[in-house]
Amino acid sequence: MSVDLEKILRPVDHPMTPFPAKYMTLASGEEMVIRQVDRDEIPDILQYVEPLVHVERDFYDVVAARLYSEILAYSRSRYQDQYVLVAQVDGEIAAVVNGRQVTPKLGMSLHTVALRRGLRIGAHAFATKMEYHMDVLGHDEVLIVAESPIGFRRWMIEYQLEKRFDTPHELGGVPSWSLTRELFDRARDTLVVGRRPVPDELLAKARAGILPPSDPPTPPADLLAATRSMYDSTGTALMSQRWQQEVDNA
């Protein structure tokens, strides 16, 4: 009796409503398109993510390594119910975000990587990912973790995420934080931007090909010095403490 092992190894994806592309104007005046990519475009992205594995700054190495493995597994059908969104400026890759659907009501945010720093590119991409979970997939809650202090400030503090520490996150089994619908609605006016439909010309340029980043993050000149500043314990702790006080007072 023959066994088709691939049928056993390959997870069965559940149907997920596709993400409708959108665009936004950056502070630079450039238009950034954020769109969903299919498995066949993943190899293009992988070649731009791989160099970041060697950037020991702001946890780019950890995040890039994990993202690489996640989207590679997605492209080879070894990751269930994952989606990948890419942000492009003039076709050039600016950010990649991914996540997955755990249940029809629960999302799991995976990673956000800005391949061009500044201009809130990473923040815009993350907000778009949350919009996909909440408004398109209809999730009530998205579980989130941050690997870097920058991520912690952008997600946990800016969105004032709730603790779900009894639920291990798929990334490293660490305690989860949660974006609820209520929190998302509260952040919607200030953090979630973008317009639809994307003008045909913009969308066509983005779809024509994912171009390499012209100014990607680079390794630090002095690894020891970068390590000292990387942990950033005091500031994040202070901000976290202050925010907790606000929550308690409310």
């Binding site: 936004m24 502070a27 630079s28 005046g29 809130r120 815009h124 931007v193 317009r195």
Partner: peptide, 14 residues
Amino acid sequence: TIEGILDSPEAMTN
């Protein structure tokens, strides 16, 4: 640009 930091719909977030 002025568009990006003041006039665009996204300016208040940017």
